[in-house]
Design a protein around this nucleic acid. Structure first.
Lengths: 95, 95
DNA sequence: TAGATAATTAGATATTTTTCTAAATATTGC
DNA sequence: GCAATATTTAGAAAAATATCTAATTATCTA
C-alpha cells in the first residue's frame, strides 16, 4: 500500500464524501459529481488522487467512466492504523 | 472525534513518524525531535496539529513537555474506516 | 461524419501547509 | 534574580493543494 498517497487522499473532505457515495455501489463520474458544488474538472482531479491511492477503481462503460471502491485498501489502512498504536501483545508494532 | 483534524494530522509523514516514535512510550519534545532533521519550531507546529486532532496528550514535567499517544483516537479512526467501506451486514454504513 | 454528451488535461490563480528565523515563555539551579 | 535549557509563538517565505476556465479526448447517435 502506498501509505502516503492513501493518507493524503483521505485528508480531503470532498474525497471522503466521494468514497462515501460509492458505498452503495459503483457510480459514474457525473452521478458522483451531481452531489457536489464543484466543477467537473476539480472533481476529476479528486478522482485522480483517489485512483493514485488505489482507493477507487475505474472502468469505462461507453461514454461514461464508472467508479467503484477498492475495499482491500481500506482494510489495509485500518490494519495499518491498528499496528500504529500499542496494545496487548503489540508493543512496538510489527516490521 | 474531529474527523477532519485527525485525517489531516495523519496525512503528513513527519507526524506519522512522530506517532511511531511514541509507540514505545511517552517522550519529551526534545527526545522526539532528535530523530528529525527539522527545527524545534517546526516540530512544535507538528505537535500542535497532533494535539488538535487529539492524537497525543501532553504533560509538563518540570522543564520538559512529555508527549504520549492517545490510543482511543486511533481506535476511533480505525473503526471509522471500517464503517467507510461496505461489507457483509454493513452496506450503507451507519449514521 | 457532425453534433452532443461525459470526462479529462492544461494552465493559471487562490488557499493552505510546511518550514524557517527570531522572539517570547516556562522552569531549573546557582 | 540571572543564566541556561526546553519548548512554544509570531511572522515571513517556500512548497504543495484545490479550484477555476478553456481546450482536448472519447464515445454515442442521428
Amino acid at each position: 500500500m502506498k501509505q502516503q498517497e492513501v493518507f493524503k487522499a483521505m485528508a480531503d473532505p470532498t474525497r471522503r464524501a466521494i468514497l462515501k457515495r460509492l458505498q452503495g455501489g459503483a457510480l459514474t463520474a457525473g452521478e458522483i459529481g451531481a452531489a457536489f458544488d464543484i466543477t467537473p474538472a476539480s472533481l476529476s482531479h479528486h478522482f485522480a488522487v483517489l485512483k493514485q491511492a488505489d482507493l477507487v477503481r475505474t472502468e469505462r462503460r461507453g461514454q461514461f467512466i464508472v467508479y467503484s471502491l477498492n475495499s482491500t485498501v481500506f482494510e489495509d489502512l485500518a490494519r495499518m492504523l491498528m499496528d500504529l498504536f500499542p496494545s496487548k501483545g503489540n508493543v512496538g508494532g510489527k516490521k
